[in-house]
Structures are given as structure tokens and as C-alpha cells.
Simulated scan of single mutants.
Amino acid sequence: MAANAELSEKQTVVEVCKRIPKGTVCLLSALAMHELTTQAPFEVWLAIDRKDWLPQVKDLPIRIVRFSGDALKSGIEHRVIDGVSIPVYNPAKTVADCFKYRNKIGLDVAIEALKDGWKARKFTMDEIQKYAVICRVQNVMRPYLETLIA
């Protein structure tokens, strides 16, 4: 790759995860990794503990969100990209997070991810309900879940 070439989306995720090893890829970036969105995020969305210091990385496009407790620790899987293990929330946890952060990313994005993930069989109803409870969005998600099984 040429020295002046822009980093690809995957290379950017790898660089961000190398520099912020306590972070977990989440929200729009996780949706893209799971192929659950038509949007290409221009920032790498990363979850860190609400008590952690805010990372100072000026040369990479990063969007930090704060999670805590089970919402931070649950549903993490690892993907290997260019030999680097990347922590990313699984599809069901990612969709629940999208409903939790619907004011930041848009309710339409969360609903699209739920429908697309269900259609592509990326998660079961039990999995999505488990993470809805962990993220405390079961009441918000209930009407949309009901339309999936209707």
C-alpha cells in the first residue's frame, strides 16, 4: 500500500483497536462488521468503561461511547483482521445497543438492524431479548420484536 493511501475501513478498525486495547467495537462499526447496515461509518465506534480515561488519539477517526457493567462485558466476540484480534459485540448485543443509543444513531438505523439481523438469522429471539434486558431497552424494543414474530 502506498504511504499516502488512505486506510481502508478494516485497517482503521485494526489501528484503533491496537491503540485502545480496552475498547470494544460497537454500534455503527459493529453493524458494518456484521453486515447489518447499508451505512459506512466514517468513525470507528468504540465502547470503553465509563470509568476509563478518555483515549487521546488525534490522527484516527474515533467515536467513544461509555458502557458499564454487563452492558460493557457481555456479548463480546473476537474477529481476526490482518492478524489482529478485534473485540466486537455480537449481532444481538449490537442491535440492543443501537436501541439504547437510538438518540445518537437514529431509531431508523436500530429498526433496520433488527429487521436485517432477524431476516439474515444473525441471532435468535432468546439472544435479542437477553441483550435487550442487559441494555435495559426491552420495553423500547418490544413493539418491534412483536412485528418480527407476527
Rank of each mutant, 00 (worst) to 15 (best):
V57Y: 02
I81F: 12
T147C: 05
L107A: 13
D126L: 09
Q39A: 10
C98W: 03
R19F: 11
K122G: 03
P55F: 07
V13H: 01
W118Q: 04
L27S: 09
M125D: 04
D82A: 06
G117I: 03
A132P: 07
K58I: 09
E127I: 04
V137I: 06
R63P: 03
T12N: 00
R19H: 03
G106D: 02
M33F: 14
A110W: 08
L60Y: 07
I111M: 06
A132M: 02
I20M: 05
A132V: 03
P91G: 08
Q39R: 06
K18A: 01
C135P: 03
L72Q: 14
Y101D: 01
Q129Y: 00
K130E: 10
T124Y: 04
K119Q: 13
A30P: 11
R63S: 09
D52C: 00
K104S: 11
E77F: 06
S8N: 03
A132T: 12
D59W: 00
L46H: 11
Y144I: 02
P41G: 13
I76M: 09
P87Q: 13
V25L: 05
F99I: 14
K51L: 10
H78I: 15
A32P: 02
K58W: 02
Y89D: 07
R102P: 00
V133R: 14
V109A: 12
R79F: 14
V16L: 02
A113V: 05
L145M: 14
T94N: 07
R102F: 00
C17K: 04
E6R: 10
Y144D: 02
K18I: 13
L60T: 03
A32G: 10
E43V: 13
N139C: 01
A132Y: 09
D82Y: 12
V14P: 03
A96Q: 09
A120E: 15
T94L: 11
I86A: 07
I20N: 05
K58P: 00
D70V: 04
G69R: 08
I62K: 02
A47H: 02
I20W: 09
L114V: 06
Q129M: 08
M33S: 13
W118T: 02
Q39M: 01
N90K: 08
E77P: 01
A32M: 08
K10L: 15
K10I: 14
H78L: 10
I128K: 07
Y144N: 11
C26R: 01
P61F: 01
I111C: 08
M125F: 05
V88F: 02
R102L: 01
N4A: 09
E127Y: 06
I86K: 10
T37R: 05
K73Y: 12
Y131F: 15
R121P: 01
H78G: 00
F99E: 05
L46Q: 07
F67Q: 04
P41T: 07
V25D: 01
A96F: 08
L31V: 08
A3T: 00
V13A: 09
K93H: 11
V80Q: 11
L114C: 15
C98R: 05
R142T: 06
E112W: 07
K18S: 05
P87L: 14
F99T: 11
K51C: 02
D70H: 06
R121K: 15
I111Q: 14
T24F: 04
K122I: 03
N103S: 10
D70Q: 13
A2H: 10
A113T: 13
R142D: 04
N139Y: 09
V88W: 12
K119P: 00
Y101L: 08
A113N: 12
R121A: 13
V140E: 15
A92G: 08
